[in-house]
Design a protein around this nucleic acid. Sequence first.
DNA 1: TGCAGTACTGTCGCATCGGAAAGTGCCGAA
DNA 2: TTCGGCACTTTCCGATGCGACAGTACTGCA
Lengths: 120, 120
Amino acid sequence: MAKGKVSYSCGLDAAVDVVGGKWKPLILWALHEAGTRRFGELRRDVSGVSEKMLIQQLRELEADGIVHREVYREVPPRVEYSLTGLGQSLNTALLPLGQWGDDFMSQILRNREHPRTGPA
Amino acid sequence: MAKGKVSYSCGLDAAVDVVGGKWKPLILWALHEAGTRRFGELRRDVSGVSEKMLIQQLRELEADGIVHREVYREVPPRVEYSLTGLGQSLNTALLPLGQWGDDFMSQILRNREHPRTGPA
DNA sequence: TGCAGTACTGTCGCATCGGAAAGTGCCGAA
DNA sequence: TTCGGCACTTTCCGATGCGACAGTACTGCA
């Protein structure tokens, strides 16, 4: 489960630990958009992710109580992932951050290209 | 600068990349609380951080245009760090997330201790 | 018979992360 | 004259991240 810290100095620290995996923002976003997705669907939604990483990040999110994993013991195995209530509250709390990213990511990318050109 | 990705699939991805360093939430929080801090002060504020990591994370935040670095060429060198406008807007966007962390981190910690005991 | 799809699991190995610690140049205090 | 503080910088090295890839158990399709 993420770094699996035992304690946090502040809530922000905890939240970033939960959401800070390489693919977690994308997974959270995909589940937020779709509601419920199967493993294979998520693998296609989150382009570039390997099966191993997808599973690993899903397991961590599950351990943290962010996503719910429902297994249907059917002929071809079917597993559906969805956000828990906690996951939905997390996504709500992430909305302003996502908005900030949308608004400023081009500026940030520009800042990185030529340092000390961005407005202070 | 963080992972230094060249593009992002969504704003959330970008924001987590900017804020996802090990010590960055703590640094952001310290600067948010104090307004302006010197290097040595930050080192004491953010307990446990090594000088190397503190510098590194500060440099990344500076490259992303989140913190401002002001050097005073004085007898003992003095350097002051503060949030830029962009950094302040980031902190504003982070407030709900910090609140979420404060509200639920104990629940998350509990979820990790005994899996499948948290409410779905 | 063999290939594809489902949902994983396990191993290998490079690359990055990040902590410890020592070095740097300058200065004031003891 | 040595110590300590300031703000770094550099090196070493173990821990971790993460991608590539192969394997598993089952089934349906051709």
